Amino acid sequence: MTFRFRAATAALALTSAAAFMLPAAANAHFQLSYTPEVQIDRPGDVPVKLIFWHPFENGHAMDMAKPLDFYMIHRGEKTDLTDRLTPITFQGADNTADAWEATVPVKRAGDYVLVTVPAPYYEESEDIYIQQITKAYLNRGTMPTDWAEAQGLPTEIVPLNKPTNIIAGSTFSGVVLSNGEPVPGAEIEIEYIAAEPDMAANSTTEPTVSPLPGGSVVAVTDADGTFTFGIPKAGYWGFAALGSGPETEHEGKELSQDAVIWIRAYDLK
């Protein structure tokens, strides 16, 4: 598992983060908010799976309790989606785990920001709790409305590129916020969904790539809380700012309150 440290202690990160990469101890926990498509052509209910997993290595899946909150933001308006959540069992490559599914009502054109606030997860091997506050994005009709806005979360990554159509081979940048303020020195774990979930079977699929040697891919934010990463391949990329949130304790143990964002990249054709 990846060793986690508070972002504020990473003073070394005040150098440029655009090309600064560090090896981490192992592949990362990642809270998924997964939909097969993020570009929505017609109005309707869009299925989403909430899975706590190691998607780059197609590895161990963790049991996920019911989220504390699950909602969408569209044109600045919040819609609670927690009553749409249904428990499922996700079949990973090596184990099964409790997960959740829901549908997102997409009607008008514009961006739909999906926010998942999971219950803290106890990681026994590290003797800490992990809470990954996660944002994912849908868009209908190519109209930009909400993607560039902060959503007022305890901690979040605000994208500086439109997250629903990143060009593979270009870059993605984001700003890490804690209580609305930029976080310098935040450790950013970077993950690729190597085996996109089968929506009907609630299971993993054959991976398309293998994890890199040396553990997780990691960058660090600069003095303004910003990071930039070159996107080498089409597909879904996730970024997790470890320990960037204001809450540091849960039930008497250390809490790593992380900000997660998912983006979708495409090849030029």
Rank of each mutant, 00 (worst) to 15 (best):
Ile231Leu: 10
Thr134Asp: 00
Pro211Glu: 12
Ala97Asp: 02
Thr204Gly: 12
Glu189Ile: 11
Phe20Pro: 00
Arg6Tyr: 09
Pro182Leu: 00
Gln91Ile: 06
Leu177Thr: 05
Gln91Cys: 11
Asp111His: 14
Ala201Arg: 14
His74Asp: 09
Ala223Gly: 02
Thr221Val: 02
Thr134Tyr: 02
Ile193Tyr: 09
Gly92Trp: 01
Lys269Glu: 14
Pro36Phe: 04
Glu126Phe: 11
Tyr71Leu: 03
Leu177Val: 10
Ile190Phe: 01
Gly214Phe: 04
Ile130Ser: 09
Phe52Ser: 11
Gly235Ile: 07
Ala11Met: 09
Ile261Thr: 07
Leu268Phe: 12
Val115Asp: 03
Pro213Val: 07
Lys269Trp: 03
Ala28His: 00
Ala102Glu: 09
Gly245His: 04
Thr9Lys: 12
Ile73Tyr: 10
Glu247Val: 00
Leu81Arg: 03
Arg84Asn: 03
Leu68Val: 06
Gly230Ala: 11
Ile263His: 11
Pro36Gln: 12
Glu126Tyr: 06
Phe70Asn: 05
Val113Asn: 07
Thr103Ser: 15
Arg4Ile: 10
Arg108Lys: 05
Pro43Arg: 00
Ala25Phe: 12
Ser256Gln: 08
Leu212Asn: 05
Ala234Leu: 01
Tyr137Ser: 03
Lys233Glu: 07
Pro105Leu: 14
Leu81Met: 13
Glu181Leu: 12
Ser203Arg: 15
Thr228Trp: 12
Phe172Pro: 02
Ala93Leu: 13
Thr204Ala: 15
Thr145Trp: 13
